Computed example of a mutant assay.
Amino acid sequence: MDLQERRGIETDVYQPAEDSRLLADAVCERLANVGDGPGGGRTVLEVGTGSGYVAGRIAAETDARVIASDLNPHAVRQAREVGIETVRADLVSPFVDGAFDAVAFNPPYLPTEPDTEWDDWMERALSGGEDGRAIIDPFLASVGRVLAPGGVVYLLVSSLADVDAVAECAGEEGFSAAAVADHSFPFETLTVLELFR
Rank of each mutant, 00 (worst) to 15 (best):
Y109L: 13
V76M: 04
N106M: 08
C28M: 04
L140S: 11
A161P: 06
E81R: 14
G52P: 06
A125D: 13
D25Y: 01
R145A: 11
V66R: 06
R124C: 11
P108F: 14
S127K: 05
F185W: 04
E123A: 15
E46N: 01
V87G: 09
G144R: 09
D120M: 02
A32Q: 06
R77E: 06
G83R: 11
I84F: 07
R57M: 13
G56Y: 08
L22T: 05
E188V: 12
C28S: 05
E194K: 11
E10L: 01
P16I: 06
D12M: 04
L23K: 04
S20I: 02
N106G: 07
Q15R: 02
A99I: 15
D101Q: 10
M1L: 10
R21G: 03
G132H: 13
R133P: 12
L110S: 14
D131Q: 15
D101E: 07
L140V: 13
N72H: 01
L23I: 00
F196G: 15
L195G: 10
L126E: 07
G41P: 14
T62K: 08
L193T: 05
D119L: 10
E5I: 14
L110H: 11
D2F: 00
A141L: 05
V166Q: 01
L23M: 02
A24G: 00
V152D: 06
F95L: 12
D115R: 14
A55F: 10
F100W: 14
E173S: 09
V47H: 01
A64N: 05
T112E: 13
Q4V: 13
Q15G: 02
I9S: 10
G171D: 05
I136V: 12
V76W: 09
E117T: 12
L160A: 00
